[in-house]
Amino acid sequence: MTALPAVSKKKLGLVIDLDTCVGCHACAVSCKEWNAGGIAGPLTDEKPYGDDPAGVWFNRVHSYEIEALDAQPAMTLHFPRSCLHCETPACVTVCPTGASYKRAEDGIVLVDEDKCIGCKLCSWACPYGAREYSPVEGVMKKCTLCVDRIYNENIPEASRQPACVQACPTRARHFGDLGDENSAVSKLVAERGGVALMPELGYAPVNRYLPPRARRAGAATPASPPAENLETKELPSLLRWLDRALSR
C-alpha cells in the first residue's frame, strides 16, 4: 500500500486562515477529543498528572512573532500544524509494512494501526511533524482528517466535517475538496492566495494556508475633512456649538 495510488481527483484537505487564527487551541483540543474515541484512538497521554506530561496530538498550535517591516508593524502569528495530506508524501512510501497509506478515493493519508510495527520511519519522513508515535501503544498515529466524521451518515450533514473545523471559534478553518477548483475551499485559496508549506521538498501538500492580510495600521489616512484647528486655549471655541439647531 506503501506505493502511492494514482493521483485522485478528489483531494480532501484543510484550508487554514492565518489572518484570522487567534491561537486559541480549540482545534487542537477538539481534535484530541474526537480522535481519542475515534478510529485512531486512544491518543494516549503519558504521566497525565505527573511531572512531564506528554501525549499524542494530531494538531498543535504554534505562536510566533514576526518582526516589523516598514509597511507592517510587528505581529503575533498563530499557526496550527497538522497533517497536510500530501499528494506525494514520503511518509507513505517509506513505510515498510503498508500500514501507512494514502486513500485512492480522496487522498486522505492514514495509518492502519493493525499493520504498523512502530518503526517511526514515517515520522522521520514527514517534514511537517504530523506523525506522532505513542510509545505506550507502540504504533504511529496521525490526523485522520476525521474520516470517521466526514462520511458518517449518523452525523447531521452540516456537522460532517473535521472536529477541528467544527470547533474553531473564529471559523479560521475550512474543509473541502481542493481537487475541485469550483469548491468553496478552492475558491477561497484562489481569492486569498493560499499557499502550500515547504513546497520545495516536493511532498505536494494538499492543505493550504491563507497568509495574514496586510495589517492596516496607519497606512492610508482616511478621507476626512481637515481638523478645524481650533485654538483650544481660548474658550470661545465653545461658541460654535451655540447656534447649532439640534433636533431632539
Partner: peptide, 10 residues
C-alpha cells in the same frame, strides 16, 4: 510485515 513493501520502502 516489514518485508511486504519492497517496491517502495528501503
Amino acid at each position: 510485515r516489514a518485508f511486504s513493501q519492497w517496491r517502495s520502502s528501503w
